Amino acid sequence: MPPRRFAFGRAEDAVHPDTMRAALSEFIATALFVFAAEGSVLSLGKLYKDTSTAGGLVVVAIAHALALSVAVSVSLNISGGHVNPAVTLGALVGGRISLILAVFYWVAQLLGAVVAALLLRLATGGMRPLGFGVASGVSEGHAVLLEIVMTFGLVYTVYATAIDPRRGHLGIIAPLAIGFILGANILAGGPFDGAAMNPARAFGPAVVGWRWKSHWVYWVGPLVGAALAGLIYEFLVIPDETPRTHQPLAPEDY
Rank of each mutant, 00 (worst) to 15 (best):
R96F: 13
I97D: 01
F104W: 14
Q109V: 06
A86Q: 08
T88R: 08
P85W: 09
A102V: 10
G95N: 10
L119I: 13
L110F: 14
V115R: 00
A108M: 10
L118T: 15
W106F: 09
L110V: 12
T88E: 09
A113G: 10
L92I: 02
I100F: 03
G94V: 00
G94F: 04
A117F: 04
A108I: 08
L89V: 15
F104G: 04
A108H: 07
A102Y: 06
A108Y: 11
L110T: 13
Q109Y: 06
L110H: 07
R96D: 07
Q109M: 10
G90S: 07
L111R: 05
A91H: 08
V87G: 05
L99H: 13
R96M: 09
A91D: 01
L92V: 01
G94H: 00
W106N: 13
P85T: 07
A117L: 01
F104A: 15
L92G: 00
W106R: 00
A116V: 12
R96N: 13
L89G: 05
A86Y: 07
G95C: 12
L110E: 00
Q109F: 04
V103M: 07
L119C: 15
R96T: 05
L89C: 09
G94R: 03
V114N: 08
V93Y: 04
L99M: 15
L99T: 15
A108S: 14
I97T: 15
L99E: 03
L119V: 14
V103Y: 02
I100C: 03
L101S: 12
A113I: 05
A117R: 02
A108V: 10
Q109A: 04
G94N: 06
T88S: 15
L89K: 02
A108W: 05
L111D: 06
Q109W: 04
V114Y: 08
V115M: 06
W106Q: 07
G90T: 01
L111M: 15
L111S: 11
Q109I: 08
V93T: 04
A102P: 10
L118Y: 15
L110G: 07
Q109D: 09
L118P: 03
V115N: 06
I100S: 03
A91E: 00
Q109G: 09
Y105T: 08
V103T: 03
V114D: 07
Y105V: 00
A91I: 00
L118S: 14
I100V: 09
V115E: 06
L111W: 11
S98I: 04
P85C: 03
V107A: 14
V93N: 03
P85R: 07
L119F: 15
I100M: 11
A91T: 13
V87R: 02
L101W: 01
F104H: 14
A113V: 09
L119E: 13
G112P: 13
G94A: 03
G95F: 00
A91W: 00
L118D: 12
L118R: 04
V87L: 06
Q109P: 07
V114G: 01
L101F: 02
L111I: 09
V115D: 07
W106K: 01
G112Y: 12
G112S: 13
L99Y: 13
A113Q: 08
A108R: 11
A102I: 05
V107Q: 06
L118F: 14
V87T: 15
A102G: 14
S98H: 05
F104Y: 09
Y105D: 09
I100Q: 01
V115C: 09
V115Y: 01
I97F: 01
I100K: 02
G95D: 05
V107W: 08
V114K: 05
I97P: 02
L118C: 04
A91G: 11
L111T: 11
